[in-house]
Amino acid sequence: MSKEKYKPPPFNYCDYRCERCDERDNCRVFKENQERIMDHYLKGEDPYNPDVFIKDLGNIFANTNRMISKMAEERGIDISDATSREVPEVNPEEYVVYRLAYVYFQEAHAFIKELENSGVPDAIREDFEDLTWYHTLIAAKAGRLVSGFVDDFLDEELQAIEEEGTIGVIQKGITLSSEALHHMLNELPEHLYAISDLINLLKRLGKQLQTDIHQKVVPDKA
């Protein structure tokens, strides 16, 4: 499979903000979800009713299971004994890229809570929403990135494409969060140090993504 011939679908690098996405028309996940919602409305059902949603979730899992089984069969993989196979575990804390993302999450979360308690000015409302949305997503995607380092289900080329998509989401989060923080800095000079620390962490994380995503944390010497 050639990267030049294969363009990953939008959901491979999704940040779950469909309302802001330019790829909605090309996204199968978005289309299927919209069709699901419309189908329920046509039947006079509330697609957000818990019972309806749980039933839909069951159908989604069943379809996913069929897709995985088909993929495994095409690759000659027997998944009937999958439960007996030992799955390698990854400690994300061993990797610098995840450590930076998680430290950023912790500091950003504390800052967000502080602003919620004191009140968010209208002038930075959208920036606050971006910061809130991406501070969890960045850490979650960083965890997904490092967990894939021991995933032997995908071949090297597909693994590279998967990593590229995950890194793309993290970088998007870094860019939009940095822009939000710079805007907030102008409106919240009293939070200069906290905001500057967050911006610096994002810069370090971005640099780590560009240099070495596999770098491990050097253990402290006793």
Rank of each mutant, 00 (worst) to 15 (best):
K113M: 13
I54H: 13
G76M: 07
R85M: 11
A110S: 06
Y193Q: 15
N12S: 14
K3E: 11
P189L: 08
E163Q: 13
L145E: 00
L181I: 02
R125Y: 10
Y134A: 08
I124L: 05
R20C: 02
D15K: 09
L57D: 02
H40T: 07
G206C: 05
D78L: 01
A222P: 15
I167A: 08
D25A: 12
F105N: 06
P219G: 06
N117R: 15
V169S: 02
I170W: 00
A72F: 06
E179R: 12
F128P: 03
A222L: 15
S177W: 09
A101V: 00
Y134R: 08
C27V: 04
P50E: 06
N26L: 09
L137D: 05
D15Q: 12
L154G: 01
D56P: 00
D78G: 03
A82S: 11
N63W: 11
D22H: 10
E157S: 10
E35R: 09
L185P: 07
L154S: 08
A142V: 03
K221L: 13
D81C: 07
H182S: 14
E126A: 09
V120H: 02
L202C: 01
Y13M: 11
V97D: 03
R28W: 07
L145K: 01
L145S: 08
E73K: 13
I77H: 05
F105M: 09
E107P: 00
V52K: 07
E116Q: 14
P8D: 01
R17V: 08
E89S: 09
L115F: 09
E187F: 12
N49P: 02
N26K: 12
H182A: 13
E126F: 06
Y6I: 14
T211H: 03
Q215D: 03
V87N: 13
Y134G: 08
E156H: 06
I37Y: 08
V97Q: 00
L205W: 02
